[in-house]
């Protein structure tokens, strides 16, 4: 996962997740506060520029991460732009462009783009383990945090199992025709379910052997100059929100 690579290797890795979370939040607030399409696009450019030049995410990687959601946004926007007419015209059903709606659609799409850059800022600068500890500070229920921690830990184990199984199946021509690939995929998923069961029992045994009897506990990471970075995040975040509110 490309976002993971950046999250662990970017220039702002050692900056407090609180600061980065606050900045991403203000980016989202600014995107919603933006009065016009132009302002929202400006926010998107500023926030992505901060991710690329500030946090030092390589441009190529940023583009590769942003392309799939951009295509998704394109499809979503196109589906808004088309209006289907049921039965009023002579042919029964007709497609036409919802031109009167274009300003509203442009606003939604640009807002979405600005929000996306803010989300990517957080995703590309902050590893999930930091985000989980940030959520722990926000008093998110322990059960939910444990679910997230376990999910994050096991994710990569299971992806590797999927990769290995698929390689073995493909080597035996398991994905040659539609019906065979359906059967192979079914076998893969069912063996994965068994692994879920067995791995969770093994994890439980391991945890009990170490005397764990409740929620997982983690040491908080120490970050340099937490106060300064949080103040910088608040100031720059407020500037962006203020810009969004003032510009039309």
């Amino acid at each position: 996962m490309l976002t993971e690579q950046s999250a662990y290797s970017n220039r702002w890795r050692r900056i407090s997740p609180v600061a980065k979370g606050l900045f991403a939040l203000s980016g989202i607030i600014a995107a919603f506060a933006a009065g016009s399409t132009r302002t929202a696009l400006l926010i998107a450019i500023v926030v992505s520029a901060i991710s690329i030049f500030g946090a030092g995410v390589p441009l190529i990687r940023y583009l590769r991460v942003v392309t799939p959601p951009l295509l998704f946004l394109l499809v979503s926007t196109l589906s808004l732009m088309i209006s289907i007419d049921f039965g009023t015209s002579a042919s029964g059903l007709s497609l036409h462009l919802a031109e009167s709606d274009f300003p509203r659609i442009a606003q939604a799409a640009s807002r979405s783009l600005a929000c996306l850059t803010a989300l990517l800022f957080l995703a590309l600068t902050t590893p999930l383990s930091d985000i989980i500890s940030l959520l722990r500070r926000c008093k998110v229920p322990e059960t939910l945090l444990d679910l997230m921690t376990l999910c994050y830990r096991t994710l990569f184990v299971l992806s590797e199992a999927v990769h290995d199984t698929m390689t073995a199946q493909s080597a035996r021509l398991g994905y040659t025709t539609l019906s065979i690939s359906m059967r192979s995929l079914g076998g893969l998923v069912s063996s994965l379910i068994v692994q879920v069961w067995q791995r969770s029992l093994a994890l439980n045994n391991a945890a009990e052997a170490r005397g764990n009897d409740g929620a997982f506990r983690f040491l908080e990471n120490n970050y340099d100059n937490t106060r300064i970075s949080i103040s910088i995040a608040i100031v720059s975040g407020s500037i962006i929100v203020a810009l969004a509110a003032i510009l039309t």
Binding site: L150, T154, L192, I193, V196, S200, N204
Partner: peptide
């Protein structure tokens, strides 16, 4: 079953 649902989420 304490670990089950977390692993299920990863699944």
């Amino acid at each position: 079953q304490r670990m089950l649902l977390g692993v299920a989420a990863a699944f």
